[in-house]
């Protein structure tokens, strides 16, 4: 059965770090990666290689995280390889499509970029438990409370959603089996037949989702949710190791941004002119 997240319980420095620092670091690194500068990308690759033994997760979970992305990577690579104009690569002149050096470079580079993004995100979920993550998001959103964003409600909603994804997934699978047994066919027949099959799957699932939601709302109310200010079981606090990590991350990100801007990148990579 499908496993939600890939948290690995280990006793490591990275696991013990404050989750807030880990979240902010991942966001900073993602922005750095999206600058698309080979120097910073090599820096981040090195950094992740150092992080791997530190977090004591082993290489296998990272391979597992990359597995579902393989098709996407291949698609991205070949899209650039085939559709970039430039100097053609000599050995393949007789092919219908022309492969170019530029295409090869952009393809490899973009794939590297997204590989880094996936691995960075995987490190966060491998070393941080879902409840830690939700707690950290709640704490990070707290400053926005004055602007009307109910950070504790948002955190509650995230943990509710996380809790119910596997349940609903199971529900969908069960309904699908039940409707197949009653003659619904999802992978054959004309469009009209499939339409009917899809409705027969979605209707029961949505109805039971609504029913579940009602029961949950009543249960929450019965337990006094929203009756006053909520407190956390474990209030997050920064320790010395956290300050050290924060400083290191700050220096790392600072150096990265300096490299990017000194190499003439605009502030936000997305808006730089497509070549």
């Amino acid at each position: 059965m499908y496993r939600m997240g890939q948290y690995l319980l280990r006793d490591s420095r990275v696991h013990q770090l404050d989750p807030r620092i880990k979240i902010v670091s991942v966001i900073l690194m993602s922005i750095l990666v999206l600058y698309g500068e080979p120097v910073t990308q090599s820096m981040i690759t090195l950094f992740l290689m150092v992080l791997l033994p530190l977090s004591r997760t082993g290489i296998r979970p990272i391979q597992q995280a990359l597995k579902p992305m393989l098709i996407f990577f291949a698609f991205l690579f070949f899209l650039h390889l085939f559709f970039t104009h430039g100097t053609p690569i000599p050995p393949f002149p007789s092919w219908r499509v022309t492969l170019t050096y530029e295409g090869l470079y952009t393809g490899a580079f973009t794939t590297w970029q997204f590989l880094l993004l996936v691995v960075t995100a995987a490190f966060l979920t491998m070393t941080t438990s879902p409840s830690e993550l939700v707690g950290a998001i709640e704490r990070l959103l707290r400053p926005f409370k004055r602007m009307g964003l109910p950070s504790d409600d948002v955190a509650m909603m995230i943990s509710l959603a996380l809790r119910f994804v596997p349940t609903l997934l199971e529900e969908i699978a069960r309904t699908r089996d039940a409707q197949t047994a009653r003659g619904a066919r999802f992978n054959q027949g004309g469009i009209l037949q499939r339409l009917r099959a899809i409705s027969s799957l979605v209707l029961p699932v949505i109805l039971s989702t609504l029913r579940r939601a009602d029961a949950l709302a009543v249960a929450m109310e019965a337990r006094g949710y929203g009756g006053g200010d909520r407190t956390m079981l474990q209030e997050l606090s920064l320790r010395r190791a956290d300050y050290v990590a924060m400083t290191l991350m700050g220096l790392f990100a600072g150096a990265g941004f300096m490299t990017c801007t000194s190499l003439g990148q605009t502030l936000w990579p997305v808006f730089s002119q497509p070549s």
Binding site: Y2, M157, I158, I191, L216
Partner: peptide
Amino acid sequence: SIRRMVYASLFGAATAAGAFIMIPL
């Protein structure tokens, strides 16, 4: 308002669950 919260989060979860269900077409 509790009910609204729960509805939104369960439909968020349902969207996530729906992303896993592939129907060949």
